[in-house]
Write a protein that binds this DNA or RNA. Structure first.
Lengths: 166, 166
DNA sequence: TCGACCCGGTTGACACATCAACCAGACGAG
DNA sequence: CTCGTCTGGTTGATGTGTCAACCGGGTCGA
């Protein structure tokens, strides 16, 4: 309620920066994703899961932790894991503990080892190197601030009232 | 082939910046989208179409131009337009020219006029103001460079050879 | 004039995300 | 003990995006 008053829409500079940002996002994302899909038959989502699993102890995690790491909703996680299981990239494995663990298969391991270096190279080529170290650091800081601001706003907006619909 | 050689994966600083950037994206996007959905029943895609139409001459455009403006595939456009038509936000209208025109309805106009100011205010609050003018300008420039780099790379990668699969 | 292609647009099948409902074990209060 | 509730996880319905195939009117060369 304290931010409205500069006019109903963004002014030209604001607009321009915002649109540049959006365009960069879309371009980067579609480029990376298309490459991943065409060369390796993996989606961005597959990649995210495989990265997390391959970095984990013994290549195994609970679905819950995967959810925390990726910020996905649990139902999305469940659906996607069943699809990946069907394709042989992961396996759900019952263990002595309460809940089953998600395990990366040899095939999954091979897939990510095959594509990770190229992904990294692309990130460098199109993002890291274009920004350069100073701008990169700036962006990182600003990004964290944005996230922080939104976090604060959201928890402000709905303090633990009875409403579960936050 | 000239970028590989710094190691197969990103180093710590690169990694950190990249992840901050990704997180900012996801946070911003889900926040904005959720707000739009809950308060106004519009998706980001609906919004994009309505913005373009409402800025156009007479609130009407060819689907083709919408496609150019939004960078969507034609099939996605077609599907989404039929859905929006069913909801009464737009109308497809045959005219004397070759192809039908997409027209924004009164209802669509009302919807976007209702939500646009709040969208703008949120963009200011969480993006423009957090970055501040200098960093915003930097980001805009860097973003354009990224887009430019990818463009060059892609047209380089597949010059107008016979392959239509670019 | 005829056929080959191009181009804007539609369609159908399928992959994916989201939402709400459900399930089962754990846990705490009575 | 048992009833309510919480939590991690699954399921099904539905909305959305993508791919490939198709359609119909133009255009161009033979």
């Amino acid at each position: 309620m304290d931010d409205v008053g500069k006019g109903p829409w963004l002014d030209d500079d604001e607009q321009k920066a915002w649109r540049s940002y959006l365009l960069m996002n879309k371009t980067l994302e579609t480029h990376m994703e298309r490459h991943l899909q065409r060369e390796f038959g993996l989606s961005k989502s597959d990649f995210e899961i495989l990265v997390n699993l391959s970095e984990a102890e013994n290549g195994r995690m609970r679905a819950f932790e995967l959810g925390r790491a990726t910020q996905w909703e649990k139902s999305r996680m469940s659906h996607h894991l069943t699809r990946m299981e069907k394709r042989g990239l992961i396996r759900r494995e019952a263990c002595q503990a309460r809940y089953p663990e998600v395990v990366i298969t040899a095939e999954g391991q091979a897939a990510i080892e095959a594509c990770a270096p190229q992904q990294a190279a692309r990130i460098r080529e199109f993002f890291v190197d274009v920004f350069g170290p100073e701008r990169l650091a700036e962006l990182g800081k600003a990004g964290d601030e944005v996230v922080e601001t939104i976090r604060r706003h959201e928890e402000n907006d709905c303090p633990p009232e009875v409403r579960g619909t936050c």
